[in-house]
């Protein structure tokens, strides 16, 4: 581990100033991802700026019924919040499907969406990786691609974003509130993460030194009927192979509206607008769900690699979406 300086600033503004002024500085949230990267040499900052105690750590109800979640709230506390559990079950479920109890206690709402890919080549400084070292090449292509993207990848990077919480946030039209060198702004959650394109080293739309201060969840009745379905290689403590966050409104056997996002398949949580579109007005049936999945997956491309690559993700995602919507619609049309 390379030695670094540590700063505990007095407030969020000082934190932002300190990081913005130093290209070699990073924020430290719960540290559950960053500290690993420090040990592995994946991150070698000169200055680590601690956020403990600086960020709002409560969940506030706004006048319009939205929930404002402080970036300092722990993943555990967010998952356990009665309002979240009742109004946004998909979010609570997504959080609880991630990591372990100990990690969720440490992990923050600000740090979670900014955790970096689990691509094994990214995490190993002895293998080339465009995300870690731009221009060095992508070791994953043609390598072990089981956990890699089938949507929105590029020839430069096929990594996926690992967060479960972020998938739910993307489906729920959340907004990210930030404080940056240029002041405050709000970004639609779905615009927070980028696709890799030719700059995979950039995960998000945030500027250097831009701090996430809160995430707003707008009130949405549809989210009360929502669920997160995570499919993984073991029963717990594993990242998603694919996951589906879905909310659905059904009336008289017809789907009125839907919110859908996929995890484990792209460099960003994947908001499935084409699937949503295909569902609106369709009968609540397996056929509609499959068609919705197919609408979204027309551009899906498997990544070939060791052990047969990841082509299985495409049928798996179709089947997982179908199962999730079937359960949500509450009737099994078998």
């Amino acid at each position: 581990m390379k030695p670094f300086d540590y700063l505990a600033p007095a407030d969020a503004a000082e934190a932002v100033r300190s990081v913005a002024a130093n290209p070699d500085a990073v924020f430290l949230g719960g540290g559950t991802n960053l500290v690993d990267h420090l040990k592995l040499g994946v991150a070698e900052p000169g200055l680590v700026v601690g956020l403990a105690g600086l960020l709002p750590s409560g969940i506030e109800e706004l006048d319009d019924g939205a929930l404002r979640i402080g970036a300092g709230v722990s993943n555990s506390d967010l998952a356990a919040d009665p309002r979240v559990r009742e109004r946004f079950p998909v979010l609570s479920q997504a959080l609880l499907s991630g990591a372990s109890g100990q990690l969720r206690n440490m992990a923050t709402v600000g740090g979670n969406p900014l955790q970096r890919t689990r691509c094994v080549y990214f995490q190993d400084v002895t293998t080339p990786c465009n995300k870690r070292e731009p221009g060095s090449g992508c070791s994953a292509i043609g390598g072990w691609t089981r956990h890699h993207a089938v949507l929105g990848a590029s020839e430069h990077c096929i990594a996926v974003h690992p967060s479960d919480m972020a998938v739910a946030m993307a489906a729920l039209d959340a907004r990210v509130r930030t404080l940056g060198p240029a002041g405050e702004r709000a970004i639609p959650f779905v615009e927070l993460h980028r696709l890799p394109g030719d700059a995979p080293e950039r995960d998000t739309a945030l500027e250097h030194g831009e701090l996430i201060t809160a995430i707003d969840l707008p009130a949405q009745p549809i989210a009360r009927r929502s669920a997160y379905h995570k499919v993984r290689d073991r029963a717990s403590y594993a990242f998603a192979l694919v996951s589906v966050a879905a909310a659905i409104e059904v009336e008289g056997g017809v789907i009125r509206d839907a919110r859908i996002a996929f995890g484990g398949v792209a460099h960003a949580p994947w908001r499935a607008r084409r699937a949503e579109e295909a569902l609106r007005g369709a009968p609540a049936s397996d056929g509609s769900y499959r068609a919705a999945a197919d609408a979204e997956l027309t551009d899906a491309r498997p990544a070939e690699g060791l052990d047969g690559g990841n082509a299985f993700k495409i049928p798996l995602l179709r089947r997982t979406l179908t199962a999730t919507l079937r359960d949500l619609a509450g009737e099994d049309p078998r």
Binding site: R118, V120, Y121, Q123, D124, T126, T127, S139, G142, G143, W144, D233, R234, A235, S236, Y237, A238, F239, L306, D307
Partner: peptide, 24 residues
């Protein structure tokens, strides 16, 4: 997972090398 291109076990930690967890 031994990547034959490098002769390297690429999932060389307990996040990548899955062992049965309690829930299994």
């Amino acid at each position: 997972v031994l990547d034959p291109r490098t002769g390297h076990v690429v999932n060389h930690d307990l996040a990548g090398y899955h062992i049965t967890a309690n829930a299994d």
